[in-house]
Design a protein around this nucleic acid. Sequence first.
DNA 1: AAACGTTCATTCGGATCCGAACGATGGAAC
DNA 2: GTTCCATCGTTCGGATCCGAATGAACGTTT
Lengths: 163, 163
Amino acid sequence: MTGPHTVAETERAVKSRLGALHIDFDSMAAVSNIFRAANSIRNHFERTALAPQNLTWTAFVVLWVVWIWEPIETRDLALEAGISKATLTGVLNTLEGRGWVLRERAEQDRRLMNVTMTTSGRRLMRKLFPALNTQERVVAANLSSAEKKSLASLLRTVMSSVP
Amino acid sequence: MTGPHTVAETERAVKSRLGALHIDFDSMAAVSNIFRAANSIRNHFERTALAPQNLTWTAFVVLWVVWIWEPIETRDLALEAGISKATLTGVLNTLEGRGWVLRERAEQDRRLMNVTMTTSGRRLMRKLFPALNTQERVVAANLSSAEKKSLASLLRTVMSSVP
DNA sequence: AAACGTTCATTCGGATCCGAACGATGGAAC
DNA sequence: GTTCCATCGTTCGGATCCGAATGAACGTTT
């Protein structure tokens, strides 16, 4: 998806496979570019800001959500991080094993699990978050302030259209 | 990341953790929305158009690239699909096991591997690609034609800024 | 032709990733 | 208080996902 072929080349190739019938190339380009950009940025973040701590993007996002909203229940944490509860269990095992977060069973409702940050975790995030934001500035460097707002807004519109 | 908190709430929470120093919230919102949207759309596609064939998004992308550009060498296929060669090996095992693609060692250079489509694979794509495009139209339904082009263009700018 | 560094795809280890199934807990109905 | 159903986090199985190491094949240099 990040290959050397242009949009026009791809469009021509698709038409030779299907004819031109019923394919919306504008929607296709918009959506596929979302995936391309996400992949590309994610790889960049993991190679730069996250590599020193051997963190994946997902692990960082979970850490970030805990940092912002602690104490937070597991179900909300999964929703906020955009991953399934099953995935979160594995990620929390990793993060708890490294001593950055803590799991505690809730007093009132023994089914729930509260996740909090350790001192070590807070120290890590205070360094890591500005480093990530620096990289966010890098990948958005060729956008004006208005374009950044426009991009964020267009993506919110897309998200609101996902059933 | 797809949680109930608004941008303003998140911004306020971040500031309470760090102070306002040196954080570019416009870049943060733009980039984080790329990830949110990609996650959301990917899950939607896997639950709708791809579920009947038990295909993941990545497997579909690989299949799509082969369909468009066959015969294609493994190294180019990985680049085009936006995944590592190591990942591609696993995905190709899956796709070849289901009889949709074929791996053949190149005649001239015995290190290379050429990937081609089977008849069964072509039949699958002729059905699957329009189904995917239907879903792409759904998630882009609230964007005008100009907005779709603008979104694609802004994302291309972002990608060109990734080192 | 022997030695060299390079370029392939694959393998390996470890971390995600998800849907489905599972056990535990809670709460409401009777 | 027991039955029933909803909800929680975890486990399980299977598919990705990547960096690093591996081994085969190549081209070039001696």
